[in-house]
């Protein structure tokens, strides 16, 4: 059985907000290690990999590995019934036909209990090859969200060019073109806003902005984001949390 108690229930609410538009149904794979999820969007262009490590919960118990098949829209609706400061406890027995959720307020004088029906989901896990990326950009997650949203005004696609001087996001469309360049600035006072680049080789890649904008729904989970890129391989967009991560992979657009 699974029992996982999360002091900051708001974290789970934010995680669901970050994935529910990209994927509809997914298995939460529960093991000793924690709660993981890997799922592709319906068009097989993007993939979400989530890990909530066991040490983010107190207590965390999972005697046997369990796959909890969840409709993410339903789960996010139930989680909206939890207060932002509530402690959330997840429980499931080995039959895994329902997920029990308990929300306790901080004064511990209001306890709400919900049960969500689970489903059998036939999901195949994809093997993600270990990749040494040619360029890794670490930047403010809010800045990344703003750039994606701004450039969506111009085009469906963004071209990302990384050199040792900086990273340039450019878009061209019917109404014109636009570009935002962030210079590498490791010395700025505010560490959270710094743009840092690790570069083996310059890269220039095209991606769908619709997906990138979708990924930025994870912005409330982390102040920083990293973009890992190599020529003609999927982009990795990672938001690190205190006890885990949310990673998005996006297949590139490749010219003829």
């Amino acid at each position: 059985m699974l029992e996982a108690r999360l002091q900051t229930g708001a974290l789970l609410k934010k995680v669901l907000e970050a994935i529910k538009e990209l994927i509809t149904d997914a298995n939460f794979d529960c093991s000793d290690n924690g709660i993981a999820l890997q799922a592709m969007d319906n068009s097989h262009v993007a993939l979400v990999a989530l890990l909530l490590r066991h040490d983010g919960f107190e207590p965390y118990r999972c005697d046997r590995s369990l796959a909890l098949g969840v409709n993410l829209v339903s789960l996010s609706k139930v989680l909206r019934c939890a207060g932002n400061d509530d402690i959330i406890t997840l429980k499931a027995d080995d039959t895994a036909d329902v997920l029990s959720l308990t929300f306790e307020n901080t004064d511990n004088d209001r306890i709400s209990e919900y049960e969500l029906k689970l489903m059998d989901i036939d999901s195949e896990h994809l093997g993600i090859p270990d990749t040494t990326y040619e360029a890794v950009v670490q930047m403010s997650s809010a800045e990344f969200a703003r750039i994606c949203k701004d450039l969506q005004v111009l085009s469906d696609s963004v071209q990302i060019d990384v050199t040792k001087e900086g990273v340039k996001f450019g878009a061209k469309g019917e109404l014109g073109s636009g570009a935002v360049t962030l210079k590498q600035n490791g010395n700025v006072d505010k560490e959270e806003e710094a743009t840092l680049i690790e570069l083996q080789q310059n890269v220039s890649l095209n991606f769908s902005l619709k997906y990138l904008v979708n990924f930025t729904k994870a912005t409330p989970l982390a102040s920083r984001v990293s973009l890992s890129m190599s020529s003609e391989v999927p982009l990795l967009v990672e938001y690190k949390m205190e006890a885990g991560y949310i990673r998005y992979y996006l297949a590139p657009k490749i010219g003829e």
Partner: peptide, 14 residues
């Protein structure tokens, strides 16, 4: 214009 690739051409089912 560049064409959207499928993720399945990079990541294979386990």
């Amino acid at each position: 214009a560049p064409v959207q690739k499928s993720l399945l051409s990079f990541f294979k089912p386990k």
